[in-house]
Design a protein around this nucleic acid. Sequence first.
RNA 1: GGAGGAGUCGCAUAGUUGGUCUAGUGCGGCCGCCUGCUAAGCGGUUACCGGGAGUAUCCCUUUCGGUCGUGGGUUCGAAUCCCACCUCCUCCGCCA
Length: 426
Amino acid sequence: MLPLRFIREHEALVRERLSARGGDVPLDELLELDNRRRQLLTRVEGLRAARRKVSRGIGQASGHERESLIAQTREVTAQLGDCEPELGKIQTDVERLLLEIPMLPHESAPVGDADHPGQVHFCSGAPAPGSQVPPHDEIASELGILDFARASKVAGSGFWIFRGAGAHLQRALVQWMLDFQVQEHGYRELYLPALVTRTAMTNAAKLPKFAGDSYAVDNQRLWLSPTAEVALSEYHAGETLDAAMLPAKYVAYAAAFRREAGAAGVETRGLRRVRQFDKIELFNVTTPDDSYRTLERMRGEAEAVIKRLGLTYRVREVPTGDLGFAAAKQYDLEVWSPGAGEWLEVSSVSNCEAFQTRRAGVRIRRPGSARTEYAHSLNGTALGLPRTFVALLENGRQADGTVAIPDVLQPYMGHRTQIEAEASWL
RNA sequence: GGAGGAGUCGCAUAGUUGGUCUAGUGCGGCCGCCUGCUAAGCGGUUACCGGGAGUAUCCCUUUCGGUCGUGGGUUCGAAUCCCACCUCCUCCGCCA
């Protein structure tokens, strides 16, 4: 969240930056409440100070003097009773509104609405036109490695079951992607809980705004993690980190759960939009002056995965109207799906600056300095598994119907070079 | 799931007949003094959030309020009493 004082003191800037995002933000209501809050607070604090001053003498006093002092504080307490409840309500409301205000877009983020394609930053090569590749779900069912019908019996719509080489290929992807980030880019691997607290969800800025997009459990006390980013951003909550040890680089393999309410149709066919999917998440904690350099580095670390898999891809510099709630700047990485004839987002890399760390209380202290400041946090996918799987099937499909396995994955697949049709399954 | 115990300013602790707690002490950290060097010693300092004021753009100074796991309650007044919840520890039960 944004600091209230910053909003108050830089109202024009905040208005301008938020308008680049579009959408309604309750800024007027917030500022009005804050004004009232400060008036009341000054009054309440004055009364409390007066009460404390008198109250301190009661211990030593006795007799009439004591009675008189108690009567005085009783009077002050009565006055407090008139304004403290209102102050409490206002503070609750201010807090609630503050949570609804998104991160300010960075000045370098291209201005535009959600339908704006953004700026295509880099393209590894134009997709081959007029391709005859069937969509991934057809390829997969020919091979017998993917089963939607049975998955819907088990869990309803939005799920799938991998069989045989399909399951193996996903496992290989997970293993390789983790090893790659650890070995090539110096990441530390974490394994995280799939259930996260309401507090973690709120601090990561997934609540209250996006409550409807996630699954709640145990009377909303816990939530099924919609992304490993939630657990990762809470990992250092309440800690003051040594700035000399930064950046902290974490990689985690985790399932992500999303309700995807109302999503159905051609665009969601097959594996493209599902309610449970695996991904490899990158997360960095940095000093404020290093976060934009880190953003570029992380984009490169995610791109490297796509390159090694030999996929056609592009990088979108996400326009202000399409930024994530907590993101000041964001890159989306998209791979080409020849079967569907469209770009599929397989990664999103964001700099959230201090938006999450302020909520979670992640601070840093620089060597030799007594004071602390908020760290910056960045998250990125590298990569989302199902859509990567789609692209691998469609790009790797060979004339005989088999699918070539990328070189980097072969060691993880028992040195097989291709996937053939699975035989003898029930 | 059941029964006990515990949560205090980085760490360790003191603090329960409610008011001299403006939370003490030790360790660690930081600054300084002393000192061929180091160690020891001596002195000082040591959290976070928020309001006000200050020739101060979130730094700083000062003042006030809040924070003793979290949230309520009792009271003129709560670290201290009561209730709920959270976390950890011990034991029992159950379980991959």
